Simulated scan of single mutants.
Amino acid sequence: MTHFLKKAVADIRSNNFLNLITIMTISLSILVVSVFLLFFENIDRVIESWNQGGRAMIYLKKEFRPDMLPELTAKINALGEIDEIVYISKTQALDKLKKEIASKSAFLKTLKNNPLPDALEIRMKPYKRFEKIQTFAQNIKAINIVEDVEYGRNWLGKFLKIFNLFKITGYAMCSLFFLIALFITANTVRLAFYSRKLEIEIMRLVGATETFIKTPFYVESLVQGFLGGIFGLAALLIIYLTASSGIMQSLAAYVYFDIRFLSVKLIILIIAGSTFLGWFGCYLSLKQILK
């Protein structure tokens, strides 16, 4: 195996420009794929975090009386999707609102009647699909004394639609770059093969097996794929560190969004996939050449 590795390294050095283009193409493909994976992994974590701590507000009708609370909570708990229920009276809600905006507006001081409704703040159990949240909210709203249920349906629904659309686009882009890298890798192997055609013919004449002839090409392609994965992830790391130290500090004052780099498991999977990409390109090329 050491002999084949040395032979592969020597071939890469002898055709350094061609191999550099191949490695750069694989690196670019891995970078594009990794950017989408980084985005998907972080967004999935945010959605999962929301699901784990999903909250909703149940606004009650004017006819509600505190003595109705035990029966109402029993009905909501019977739905089986609740971890916690907190009752917030209209008086508590108004007092909280006054504390939050008292220094910014004198409007509340002129109020004669409390316009806020009684409400229940609930902590929902984790959900895997947005449709289940919608169904659950509709079941609560069907209770007579309930006026409305607010769970961020508008922004969350739109966000999930955009996210799913972006996911489809990401998969399409990843597939396109994968095919481009595969095509260039296969053609690199083909050019390398024809540049050594005389040497290969001599090896065949002296009795070399097909495996002995093919192995250096496979090793060379594996090295190309491995280096392409490493360089692509290195470029992603540089982009990640730049964004984390710059853009995210600017956004920190407006929104909390903790971006994390790819997990070790995913990094290993990307490098393995990149290495396989190099091998598969070589396999397809040699299969056509050595028919």
Score class of each variant (00 low, 15 high):
114 N>V: 05
80 G>A: 08
100 E>M: 09
96 K>D: 14
76 I>P: 00
142 A>E: 15
157 G>Q: 04
95 D>T: 11
143 I>E: 08
158 K>G: 08
84 E>M: 07
105 S>Y: 10
135 T>A: 10
130 F>E: 12
141 K>M: 11
141 K>C: 07
65 R>D: 13
115 P>T: 14
120 L>F: 01
74 A>P: 03
114 N>Q: 08
75 K>L: 11
175 S>F: 15
78 A>P: 10
161 K>N: 15
146 V>D: 12
131 E>S: 13
160 L>E: 14
79 L>C: 05
187 N>H: 07
63 E>F: 04
159 F>D: 10
129 R>Y: 13
164 N>Y: 15
111 L>S: 07
173 M>K: 02
68 M>Y: 15
159 F>V: 11
172 A>C: 09
179 L>K: 05
99 K>L: 12
121 E>F: 05
149 V>D: 00
115 P>A: 09
132 K>E: 15
82 I>R: 00
123 R>M: 09
175 S>W: 15
95 D>A: 11
130 F>Y: 13
113 N>H: 12
145 I>V: 15
102 A>Q: 14
131 E>M: 06
163 F>L: 11
82 I>S: 01
76 I>M: 05
160 L>H: 03
182 L>G: 05
79 L>N: 08
172 A>D: 10
121 E>Y: 06
96 K>W: 12
85 I>C: 04
162 I>G: 03
163 F>R: 04
177 F>W: 13
112 K>W: 11
173 M>Y: 10
101 I>Y: 14
96 K>H: 07
96 K>I: 14
93 A>M: 12
